[in-house]
Simulated assay, not measured.
Amino acid sequence: MTKQRADAGDEELLNAVGPAFGKLRRSSLLEVENPISQKDLGRTLVLNVVLELAQDGTREVTVGGVGAHLGTDPSVASRMVSDCISAGYLVRAASQQDGRRTVLHLSPGGEELMARFRRHQRSAFEYVTADWSDRDRLDFARLMLKYVASQDSLRHRAG
């Protein structure tokens, strides 16, 4: 099967995807009931990375790992992690593999913030898609998860 050349309308649609992704995080999460503060929204970036990196259970999460995952300078990652620790969302612990290294874990407060953030994300999705059919909402959710899985698989191939 060969790819057909996209027509001008398709090209325009495909060119609009990038800017649309840029708007996602900046908009609807602040408009639903009981919004998460701007400061805590930023902290969820770090907490999400810690959760993602720790997900397979074989990897210890370090400040350097958070920085690499976010694509930030080590000093920026260190400040972001320190802020999450000061807010009570992350804790440092000694590595079980190398006692000289410090690893990161979510605190109970961090786990609660992430649970609240997940509920908030779901509310935002429902708010934005309130006038969509159930079929469109589920199709979009499946395709978004497929997109993210493809992006993750590219990251793992490159790393």
Rank of each mutant, 00 (worst) to 15 (best):
V49H: 02
V61C: 06
P108Y: 00
V61S: 06
L106N: 03
D139N: 05
G64N: 10
D152I: 01
T129N: 13
T102K: 15
L29G: 08
S75T: 15
F125Q: 09
V81Y: 10
G110M: 00
G109D: 10
L154E: 08
R43N: 09
A124G: 07
Q4F: 13
G110V: 01
T72M: 12
A68I: 00
L53V: 09
K39P: 00
G42N: 04
D131C: 04
L90F: 07
N34K: 12
L47F: 02
L90E: 06
A54C: 06
A141V: 03
T2S: 09
E112W: 01
L41M: 13
V50R: 06
A20T: 09
L138E: 09
G9P: 00
R119D: 14
S82T: 14
N15R: 15
H69E: 12
N48L: 06
F21M: 12
D40P: 01
R135A: 13
L14M: 15
T102Q: 15
R155K: 07
W132E: 04
S123I: 00
V128E: 07
A6K: 02
A54G: 12
A6S: 12
V148C: 00
H69L: 00
H156R: 10
A115N: 06
L104V: 09
R101A: 07
T58F: 13
R79F: 14
N15F: 09
S37V: 02
C84G: 06
S95Q: 08
A6F: 12
E31R: 14
V103P: 05
A130K: 11
